[in-house]
């Protein structure tokens, strides 16, 4: 070599020494993630549960798992942005603390269909949701959403739901031991109430069907956040 390259240091330091190169590259790549994620766990910087937000009931949790299973997040967001048009269309914009019990998060990245953050406020009718899931075009002309008739047939397994509640409890969601013990009773109670109000609209569906769980989940979405934010507004 006649002239020393200005980059000879790079060749000496890294290209000839794979271990040094690999470790340095890993550290350099790790910095950004640590800097952004670690503060989420600090008491001052991280998100905290919003006051008035309670964990999902076992039936709602079962409904949420079905929402994840069916991949609803591929078409629907749960995330109202702080813009005039979005607040008009979907309700109060989303606060971090409202998602405190969401595992996995379901903010979504596409709106092939409308946002569902506050669908429980916008569309509280259980019968509407039943009709819509059985055949979307019955209530939304020309909708492009698939039908979900199997939800009305398939039943929940309370023990399976209990496993979910118990796991959530281990992860720090504030369920009591009694909550875990009484999962089947809680499902029967809340499911029975929904099935009854569907019956008033002439709809027969089993209280422990997946349909009822899904409706329980959808009609609670965003309601507590909406109420808490309205109360905050009232304080002023």
């Amino acid at each position: 070599m006649s002239v020393e390259s200005p980059y000879a240091w790079h060749r000496r330091l890294f290209e000839g020494r794979a271990a040094v190169f690999a470790i340095t590259a890993t550290l350099v790549a790790a910095i950004g993630g640590i800097a952004e994620i670690a503060p989420m766990y600090s008491a001052t910087l991280g998100p905290k549960p919003m006051e008035g937000i309670t964990p999902y009931t076992p039936l709602e949790l079962a409904g949420r798992d079905i929402y994840v299973r069916e991949g609803c997040y591929n078409c629907h967001s749960q995330w109202v942005r702080p813009f005039r048009d979005e607040v008009k269309r979907y309700g109060e914009w989303s606060r971090a603390g409202e998602y405190a019990y969401d595992r996995p998060f379901q903010l979504g990245s596409r709106r092939i269909g409308p946002d569902l953050m506050r669908v429980g406020v916008r569309l509280p009718s259980v019968a509407w949701h039943y009709e819509h899931l059985m055949d979307p075009r019955k209530v939304v002309p020309q909708s492009i959403m698939p039908r979900y008739p199997w939800l009305a047939e398939d039943r929940l397994d309370p023990e399976d739901v209990r496993a979910s509640v118990a796991t959530m409890k281990k992860l720090g969601v504030p369920y009591s031991d009694e909550d875990v013990a009484k999962v089947p009773e809680q499902i029967a109670e809340q499911g029975g109430a929904i099935a009854n109000s569907l019956k008033e609209s002439g709809i027969e569906v089993a209280p422990d069907s997946e349909m009822v769980a899904m409706i329980a989940y959808l009609t609670r979405l965003g309601v507590e956040g909406h109420q808490a934010l309205a109360a905050r507004e009232g304080d002023k």
């Binding site: 989420m40 766990y41 998602y99 405190a100 969401d102 595992r103 996995p104 998060f105 992860l171």
Partner: peptide, 8 residues
């Protein structure tokens, strides 16, 4: 991770 942290 929960909620916004899970999202991040």
């Amino acid at each position: 991770y929960a909620g916004m942290t899970d999202a991040l």
